[in-house]
């Protein structure tokens, strides 16, 4: 119970940080997602169930705050990432570092494919432009921040 409360409070703080200060980290309009880094962290270190439902509720709240016309998409994406990262709960330390970071890239790609590609499906952008100008740069930028965070928190280290 204490773990659930602690993770929920941490999640709210990360959400507030993303909502209020996320734009400060924006480069050429590309804003990283701290929420997905948090959900991956919860899935790897705490519990898969925590990650799924925390991802759902935080994703729902951030969609409501941003006023997107596709409310619920971030909830779906974060739940999926929570499930995927939770598969490696307790096992991540036994995986080679390069494979760890390939997994993290995969998780981020799942998140951004769901949130970016579906949201921009009716835009004037060609699919190739969306992938190379938005999807991949956001994934790499968030991966860089995730790497720094996980090195400091020693996630995946024995």
């Amino acid at each position: 119970m204490f773990g659930i409360i602690k993770n929920s409070i941490l999640g709210i703080l990360v959400l507030i940080f993303q909502w209020m200060l996320g734009d400060i980290f924006s480069i050429y309009g590309l804003t990283p997602s701290f929420l997905v880094i948090f959900i991956i962290y919860i899935g790897l270190t705490n519990s898969q169930l925590h990650a799924i439902w925390l991802g759902f509720f935080l994703g729902f709240i951030i969609d409501a705050l941003t006023g997107t016309d596709m409310m619920g998409i971030t909830a779906l994406a974060l739940s999926a990432v929570g499930y995927l990262s939770g598969i490696f709960h307790g096992r991540i330390v036994r995986i080679p570092v390069i494979v760890q970071y390939l997994l993290y890239t995969g998780f981020l790609l799942v998140f951004f494919i769901l949130t970016v590609m579906i949201s921009l499906q009716d835009s004037q952008f060609a699919t190739g432009n969306i992938v190379f100008l938005i999807l991949l740069p956001k994934t790499l930028y968030t991966l860089a921040l995730l790497s720094g965070t996980f090195i400091v928190l020693r996630v995946g280290a024995e």
Partner: peptide, 26 residues
Amino acid sequence: YKSLVNLVAAIALSLLIIASNGNPAM
């Protein structure tokens, strides 16, 4: 199995929310 059921429930709820966009309750 429990995790999968929870994931399916979360996805179903998300899809329900997406389908309800524009609804006055939303």
